[in-house]
Design a protein around this nucleic acid. Sequence first.
DNA 1: AGTCTCACTGCGATCGATTGCAGTGGAGTG
DNA 2: CACTCCACTGCAATCGATCGCAGTGAGACT
Lengths: 353, 353
Amino acid sequence: MSGTPPTLDDVARAVGVHKATASRALNPATRSQVNPETARRITTAARRLGYVPNTLARGLRTSRTTAIGVLIPDLTNPLFPPIVRGIQDRLDAHGYTALLVNTDGDEDRERAQFSDLESRRADGFIVATARRVHPLLAEALARGTALVTVNRTTDLPGIPAVVSDDADGTAQAVGHLTALGHSLIAHLAGPQDVSTGAVRTQAFRHCMDAAGLRPPPESVVVCTAYTEQAGREATRRLLGACPGITAIVAGNDLIALGALAELAAQGRSCPRDVSVVGFNDMPFADRFQPPLTTVRVPHHEMGVQSAQLLLERLLEPQALPRTVLLPARLVVRGSTAPAPAGFPDRAAGITRA
Amino acid sequence: MSGTPPTLDDVARAVGVHKATASRALNPATRSQVNPETARRITTAARRLGYVPNTLARGLRTSRTTAIGVLIPDLTNPLFPPIVRGIQDRLDAHGYTALLVNTDGDEDRERAQFSDLESRRADGFIVATARRVHPLLAEALARGTALVTVNRTTDLPGIPAVVSDDADGTAQAVGHLTALGHSLIAHLAGPQDVSTGAVRTQAFRHCMDAAGLRPPPESVVVCTAYTEQAGREATRRLLGACPGITAIVAGNDLIALGALAELAAQGRSCPRDVSVVGFNDMPFADRFQPPLTTVRVPHHEMGVQSAQLLLERLLEPQALPRTVLLPARLVVRGSTAPAPAGFPDRAAGITRA
DNA sequence: AGTCTCACTGCGATCGATTGCAGTGGAGTG
DNA sequence: CACTCCACTGCAATCGATCGCAGTGAGACT
């Protein structure tokens, strides 16, 4: 019917004022500049006509779009929906909109997506795809782009970040297993080119060391990705090299799921023969078979905080970049149990200090 | 360093041509209008300067943004990430971007979000929040807005849709249970104001009827939402009213999870005492305790098809709206088993025809 | 030589909202 | 009464890319 949507000029004409006046009346910040009665007439006319401001025109003029680019590896990875939701919730509350893209861990794709978001003049970016060495982010930072990383960090300093306390979470996992009497503890490490993988692995080594345990090198297997498939393959290698292990600290829950699958396939029971600890406490981890003992990370809150950090950065671009560290907490469920008897440490070539 | 990003005019000046020429050279569609050699010089200059077209300015002029609004109830509902991913994959391939928002099933919030997307001049909308009666969509349709619904439909005709064959899926579920010897089959229905809930419930009744089974009215309990919590509450009511039932067809997997929880809480074993069938085959449904027998719906493909349908609509606004019906398939896992003996039909007041 | 065609390029309006600046009129002041 | 001040409103430039229209010059054709 109406054809094209009404513009500010249409509203102004309907009231008999200039569009500049209408603009001021409709914008809360400049509302005070116009006569209250006039403002009222403009407001009602706008509502009556169904006027919706054209964000493109506004953005073109003001060079602010109230849109934030959000980069994640893959939305179907259950880790990310809660984070994204947290981001959206906080952004929404401030009138911002998230522009969500998946990179699939592919650098070219990431560049293309990032470039698209830049062409849409996103005001800033929340990046969940950070690698420790990340040229794209370095370039963007150099250009003065507002950036925040979430879940992962970059080795490059200067980018605000929101992460969970991976080192502490790992310590809780190892502590739980040693308390259950395990000493032959293996680690299915996440990819080492991302901070979560590197930090957790380092923490694992440190904790084992502090507990006086000296696991053989083969008991730490690095997965090629944070996927069930990669976890399963790594587990196969691990069990081949270190058949005596009684517990596994997985780089994340998907890797843990892969471990569970491979253990079952090899006829080993979890938790009777081998205990498994995951990381993240992904949705429904408590409903798995067995319910997964894992380190809970506050995903939604991570999203909220990262959005908050970015919004602050937009207001105060010069402020010192800060890193928010959120607490992680071990959640004990059914995938861990006391170490089985009859597996002397010797069997795996492990020596107690 | 560079301050503001380079504009088309910057590129043109660097080459010594008019910005209009640069525009034509950079746009594949108009490339043929400019001398190949000139075009080459413009292209290289653009690359050298790091020129990225300003989508806002372009959109303002052309009134096309290559952005599509996507409305979902809640991203953390595991049903939606695969659908969204499918949408994004197809849109990406055509240079479009998805603008994703959550409505949380709240009508006011939905209106606000929709209005925001309109202000961003989205070229069209993919709606996963459709209710059978949906004024917002009716209005948008009347305005000539490009719309597609996915997963759910509206009673209102005229909106293209992509849905799974819920009736057939339900029939497979009921058929599976009757084949296992169940006759006291209950239904935990989804909300009846959305098409999936209504269609599945209707199909359930039809199948039971066709099988000669006459379940009492209390054996069909409508859940207030597609959530685990609602499923659990409905199950409590169901077991109170019809303690004799041996099988449950749930409106979706989350409701099924709620049923499993309540059954366990009441000391009834699934599948030994009661069989449960879900709907959707959400991610990791195979890893649950017990692994869930459910009706698989091609989520990713639904997303892809809905994006495809919308893109077609943008090209051909007048084309007849078509509905794409994707096949559903029962996946038998561990939550269903033969009906236990010793539960005569009489016990639940059920009569065989 | 004159005219026509054609390929290429430049000019300037345009999309819609924002904003610095200037103008208007009425109230207040000495 | 003249003048200042202030509240309010209008004017017009501006953001950056697109596109209808017109202009230019080289080559073709009669």
